[in-house]
Design a protein around this nucleic acid. Structure first.
Length: 476
RNA sequence: GGCGGCAUAGCCAAGUGGUAAGGCAGAGGUCUGCAAAACCUCCACUCUCCGGUUCAAAUCCGGAUGCCGCCUCCA
């Protein structure tokens, strides 16, 4: 079955077919590196991560390009405020960004181009647009794109120029431009830019925001490529402008599939600094939430559905992850035996549901539902004594596949218990010794001593569970 | 004002014509010295509301209400 995606261009769900069979080129809108990224930003990056993981799962070789916007109004303003050069300032947040995506287990893109490293490419593209007659120099020396020259303008976002755009902005300072909705390709330097400028054939200045994505995507992915993603807010004007710039310059279709993720809200409200519900990843980690729980919350809601981020949900995510983790541990500790037909059937069903849900425009909620159903079925079979290590090995293959697609599995905690020593009655003792002491205490029904030993385990973050096969020590 | 999206239990959330997945939380139970884990049972006769189409609607159509996004570089 083919993968299907909701294509913003045309606003329909379509079968996905790449330009080159077996390969996908995708451009995913990345961060503007002027501050630490917040969970709303990460929702977009996680959606893009799930997208690339699923394409890889289905056998595509993915080339993902994610831009780093390191020159724009905000980066300039903040670097000036901080008294740092633009390069120094943005370097700090580039580093933070890479740390954060690592924390959230977001797979690395193939290329992370920075805008400031691609000024020549942008200049060249702007020159092409000037030659083509769709760009002009405004009264302020900046170069603007004339949207009247591009008949398809508005096709992607569904905006109609006559109705909305012209009337929407009431900005009487826009005298430099022919038309209000024209946008800057190249911004002539002025004093608010400080020492941020490039001397180019276009004059002294800096690139407009939209041009970097056209220039860099085409450099690394070609003039036409498969997928372009971003948050829904980028649809207009950013992506609309990208299409206009790119297609006017090349005469070719820029992108085949556009995908946009919905925003998130926090506790039912729009996330904003003034409401105090604005969170960076780092703030949530400081509150003690695990990276994987945050990932779980961001991953398990369909990307086109507005996500309500709640702390109750975050707590629930921690529990859900523990359940998955317990399940995997269980599969590693099964008795010898033969393959059980019932297990094989449940496994096949779970896998098919999982995969068909993901193929259907990345329906991750349905997909994880199938996975949890398998967990319950298998746990039950295990309780009944109908699950063997052979079954376990097969199921583990699917568990690994689930992890490849979602990145949700906790690290396997092979609690290196032997190395840990406990403090009991002020004395340091080995785990094995403690367990033996506890066994003796329990045999003589000395529950107080037995519980004290369990407490000692708890003090070093370990948990003792009594099972029919004897005590098991696990990390908490 | 223009355009678009969404509304399913305490919370998160799937389901797009055939009679409400899944997770978390909660209640009771099995097992256990106690725990933990796991399992079992219960937890939406109903999908914001009002009409309509249909043998049949959470699903399609119309209307109302509420929330969200875009319409100056915010994922």
């Amino acid at each position: 079955m083919a993968i299907k995606f909701k294509n913003t261009l045309g606003n329909k769900i379509e079968e996905f077919h790449s330009i080159v069979p077996g390969q996908v080129g995708m451009y995913t809108c990345g961060p503007t590196v002027y501050d630490y990224a917040h969970i709303g930003n990460f929702r977009a990056y996680i959606f893009e991560d799930i997208l690339r993981r699923w394409l890889e799962y289905r056998g595509y070789k993915v080339t993902q390009v994610m831009n780093l916007t390191d020159v724009d109004d905000k980066t300039i303003r903040e670097s000036l405020k901080a008294g740092l050069s633009l390069v120094e300032y943005t370097a700090k947040f580039k580093k933070a960004f890479f740390e954060d995506i690592e924390t959230l287990r977001i797979e690395r893109a193939e290329v992370y181009p920075s805008a400031t490293d691609h000024i020549p490419e942008m200049v060249q593209l702007v020159e092409k647009l000037l030659e083509a007659g769709v760009a002009y120099r405004g009264g302020d020396g900046s170069i603007y794109y004339s949207i009247d020259k591009f008949p398809r303008y508005g096709l992607l976002s569904g905006k109609r120029l006559d109705k909305n755009i012209a009337g929407a902005r009431i900005d009487n300072d826009e005298y430099e431009k022919d038309q209000a909705a024209d946008f800057a390709l190249w911004k002539a330097w002025d004093e608010t830019d400080g020492d941020v400028f490039w001397e180019t054939r276009l004059g002294k200045g800096r690139p407009g925001w939209h041009i970097e994505c056209s220039a860099m995507s085409m450099k690394y992915l070609g003039e036409s490529f498969d997928i372009h993603t971003g948050g829904e807010d980028n649809l207009f004007p950013h992506h609309e402008n990208e299409v206009a710039q790119s297609e006017a310059a090349t005469g070719k279709k820029f992108v085949n599939y556009w995908m946009h993720n919905a925003h998130l809200i926090v506790e039912g409200k729009k996330m904003s600094k003034s409401l105090g519900n604005f969170f960076t990843l780092r703030q949530l980690l400081d509150r003690g939430y695990s990276p994987l729980a945050i990932r779980f919350v961001l991953v398990t809601t369909h990307y086109r559905q507005q996500l309500n981020f709640t702390f109750e949900g975050l707590d629930g995510a921690e529990t859900s992850l523990k359940r998955i983790s317990e399940f995997r541990d269980m599969l590693h500790n099964l008795p010898e035996g033969e393959i059980n037909e019932e297990t094989a059937k449940a496994l096949t069903a779970a896998r098919e549901t999982f995969e068909s849900c993901m193929d259907d425009d990345l329906n991750i909620s349905g997909a994880t539902g199938a996975f949890f159903e398998l967990i319950r079925t298998c746990n039950k079979l295990r309780d009944e004594g109908n699950l063997s290590s052979k079954d376990g090995a097969r199921i583990l293959e699917f568990v690994k596949a689930f992890d490849r697609a979602t990145g949700l599995l906790p690290n396997r905690e092979n609690a290196d218990s032997k190395a840990v020593r406990l403090i009991l009655d002020g004395q340091e003792i080995d785990i094995d010794v403690a367990l033996e002491k506890r066994r003796i205490a329990r045999e003589s029904k000395d529950w107080a001593s037995a519980d004290a030993i369990r407490e000692a385990f708890a003090d070093v973050g370990l948990e003792v569970r009594d099972t029919p096969e004897g005590p098991v020590v696990k990390k908490k």
